[in-house]
Design a protein around this nucleic acid. Structure first.
Lengths: 152, 152
DNA sequence: CAATTTGGTTCTATATTAGAACTAGACCGG
DNA sequence: CCGGTCTAGTTCTAATATAGAACCAAATTG
């Protein structure tokens, strides 16, 4: 089989991003980390992931700068896994996935978790893509300018 | 190994979303579809994916309502793969991944493709999460309200 | 109508994954 | 401070998924 394909050198930022967090478990681990999960055992039981997989994923995510370890905040000798700044900026990826899932993967009326603004407790607004000057853009009002292509 | 874990019944929309598009290739196929790729061979050479994998992924994505087939637009007897409405609404997921990749996975000055507003040719704005009443929210100003949890 | 292109399917070797079994160090009760 | 248990892994094995090559049939091209 040779190796699983690597996209680390791609021109497309989507491909590079998927190279880092595009596997089955990484984004779930990161989602849990946003939710306050920090300890190995918490991730393991919460996700139902095999321990070997979890250990490997945590190692990879640390190596790639998404997570880091810190001494446990409860004073014990154990370690905690926490998001780095790089990891925390995946927040909008998680939110986008969440909104898509809410829109398309539940039957009408089927209950699911909701992202709320902590201050007021209301559901957050939908994400929108805007142009540089503030117009809301649909998928068909954009295009990808490839590397080397002339601007304009 | 038993089966690969399924998250199709999860309460968390992020988990359900990843169950549909959380594997190695699906989002790359979808990204290419947004970029105008429609034919089997185009996906295959563009992605460098094995034909068997691609055939399987296309089948899965059709089955899950993200893609559909249509008669080829060039009048030939071949088929094309195009995004459904459900598939097109993954646009913001791709954009969020792109922006994260741009921010964190390129060395300063290293070139990469850019998403531009077709009308003006300028790069699009960064995504922002806002509250119901329009305030910009950071990752630490939100929380997930779980199913069954009381509102408020 | 022969040659080539397109769009697959099938096959096999290798890689990845899940899950169980095992281990070492931390913590806890006495 | 001693034995038991919890935490956080590592190691092992069997099953599944993947890459890549070989094969094939229908459509298109010359």
């Amino acid at each position: 089989m040779v190796k699983r394909v690597s996209l680390a050198g791609a021109d497309c930022p989507v491909a590079r991003a998927l190279d880092v967090i595009g596997d089955w478990w990484s984004l779930l681990i990161i989602r849990d980390a946003f939710d306050g999960v920090r300890r190995f055992g918490e991730f393991q039981t919460g996700l139902g992931i095999a321990k070997g997989m979890l250990a490997m994923r945590l190692r990879d995510l640390i190596e790639r700068g998404v997570l880091e370890t810190a001494p446990a905040s409860d004073g014990s000798a154990y370690r905690e896994y926490i998001l780095t700044e790089k990891g925390r900026s995946l927040f909008l990826v998680i939110v986008a996935l969440r909104q898509w899932g809410e829109d398309h993967l539940y039957r009408p009326g089927e209950r699911h978790s909701v992202l709320v603004d902590t201050a007021k407790g209301d559901a957050v607004a939908r994400l929108e893509l805007r142009s540089g000057d503030g117009r809301v853009l649909g998928w068909n009002e954009t295009r990808v300018r490839k590397v080397g292509e002339e601007a304009g």
